[in-house]
C-alpha cells in the first residue's frame, strides 16, 4: 500500500471540544453553551473504518464536521497524518480539504438543484485547479461509471434521479479529488433497504480499491457493525465506549451501549421473541449546560452516588476495549 509514514494513524483526535453558544436577550449575549462535542479523543488507522453511533443529538455529526474543520473546534487537537491541522488558516486548509471529503446524509438536500450532475461532481476539481477541461470531463465520466451511473448522466439535473442514485452522485463528488479520508455522515439512512445494501457494498469496494479511510456515522447499528472495523458509541457529546465492532456487539460494557444494542430490531422472528429488551426510560436530555458527573446517570439502571459527582474516565479494559463508566472503577 502506501509508503511508511510517521504514524499508523491517519486521524488523531485529542480532547476535541465543540461548544455552540446559546444567544439570549436583546444584546445576544451568550450565557450558556450547547456542548455538542465535549472532550472526545480517538484515532483512526489508515485504511480503517471507524463507526460512530448514538441517538440524534448526541454530537456524532458535529464531531465528523469538526474533524473536517467545517466547524472551528472550541479546543482540542486534530492531527491529520502526523500534522496538527487545528490551527490552520482557511488557505492553509485548502490542500487538506482535497484529502478529506464528506458524504452527506440527505441526498435530496445536499445536491444543488440548479447544477448539472457533471458540474456537481467536477466542482471540487475546478476549485483545486487539478485538471484541464477535457481531462476533467473525462474524470467526471469515469467517476460516474465508477459509482454505477452512466457517463451521459453528467448533463442531467439532480431531480431526475432517485434517492439511491443521488447518494451515488454524492459519493462520486467526494471521490473526485482523490481523497484519503471520507466522513460518511449517515449515507444510507434515507434509502430503502435494498438500495442501502447496494451503497454499502460500493463503499466497501471503493475502500478496497482506493485504500480509503472512513469515519462512518450512523444510527442504524446493524449496518455500522457490518461496515466498521471499530465502533465508538457517543452519548450527549461524550464518547462512552469504543471497541472492535465484533467485540462491542458481543460484549458491550457500558449500560448505554447495552440498551442501545438491545433496541435494534432483529429481522428474525425467533430471535425477536426470545431476546430481552432493556428499555431506556425517557429521552436524551438537553445538551445545553449538561450537569456534572456522568451524563447518562438519569437513564442508567446502575447509577450510583458517585455518578453525579465525578466524570467517569475513559479507560482501557484490555484488548483496546475502552469504556467510560464508574462501574469499572
Amino acid at each position: 500500500m502506501m509508503e511508511e509514514k510517521k504514524s499508523q494513524f491517519l486521524i488523531e483526535i485529542k480532547n476535541l471540544k465543540k461548544y455552540f453558544p446559546v444567544k439570549k436577550g436583546i444584546f445576544k449575549t451568550s450565557s450558556s453553551y450547547v456542548k455538542a462535542v465535549d472532550d472526545v479523543s480517538f484515532e483512526i488507522k489508515k485504511g480503517e473504518t471507524l463507526g460512530l453511533v448514538g441517538e440524534s443529538g448526541c454530537g456524532k455529526t458535529t464531531c465528523g464536521r469538526t474533524i473536517l474543520k467545517l466547524y472551528e473546534p472550541t479546543s482540542g487537537k486534530i492531527i491529520y497524518d502526523g500534522k496538527d491541522i487545528t490551527k490552520l488558516s482557511v488557505n492553509q486548509m485548502l490542500s487538506y480539504r482535497r484529502k478529506m471529503q464528506i458524504i452527506f446524509q440527505d441526498p435530496y438536500a445536499s445536491l444543488d438543484a440548479r447544477m448539472t450532475v457533471g458540474d456537481i461532481v467536477g466542482e471540487a476539481i475546478d476549485i483545486h485547479n487539478l485538471m484541464g477541461k477535457k481531462e476533467r470531463n473525462e474524470r467526471v465520466q469515469y467517476l460516474l461509471q465508477r459509482v454505477g451511473l452512466n457517463s451521459e448522466h453528467a448533463n442531467r439535473y439532480p431531480h431526475e434521479f432517485s434517492g439511491g442514485q443521488r447518494q451515488r452522485i454524492g459519493i462520486a463528488r467526494a471521490l473526485a479529488v482523490q481523497p484519503e479520508f471520507i466522513v460518511c455522515d449517515e449515507p444510507i439512512s434515507a434509502l430503502d433497504v435494498s438500495i442501502q445494501a447496494q451503497v454499502v457494498n460500493m463503499l466497501e469496494d471503493l475502500q478496497g480499491d482506493l485504500g480509503l479511510t472512513y469515519l462512518f456515522i450512523a444510527h442504524d447499528l446493524s449496518m455500522v457493525k457490518h461496515i466498521s472495523n471499530r465502533v465508538g458509541v457517543m452519548y450527549l457529546g461524550k464518547l462512552v465506549e469504543l471497541a472492535a465492532s465484533n467485540e462491542l456487539y458481543k460484549n458491550p460494557q457500558h449500560p448505554y451501549t447495552q440498551a442501545l444494542l438491545s433496541a435494534i430490531p432483529v429481522p428474525d422472528p425467533d430471535m425477536a421473541e426470545e431476546r430481552k429488551r432493556i428499555i431506556l426510560e425517557g429521552e436524551i436530555p438537553s445538551p445545553i449546560d449538561p450537569p456534572e458527573g456522568c451524563r447518562f446517570k438519569g437513564r442508567c439502571r446502575f447509577a450510583k452516588p458517585i455518578c453525579s459527582k465525578e466524570n467517569p474516565v475513559f479507560k482501557d479494559l484490555g484488548g483496546e476495549h475502552y469504556v467510560a463508566c464508574h462501574l469499572f472503577d
Binding site: 432517485s162 435494498s194 445494501a197 466497501e204 449496518m223 456487539y249 430471535m271
Partner: peptide, 22 residues
Amino acid sequence: LLGSVPNPKTLIKERLKPIDGQ
C-alpha cells in the same frame, strides 16, 4: 430483501447481497 440486511445471527462479516437496479 432478506439478503440485503446483515444477518443478525453471524458475527462473521459476510458481503451483503443487494437487489440490483431500480
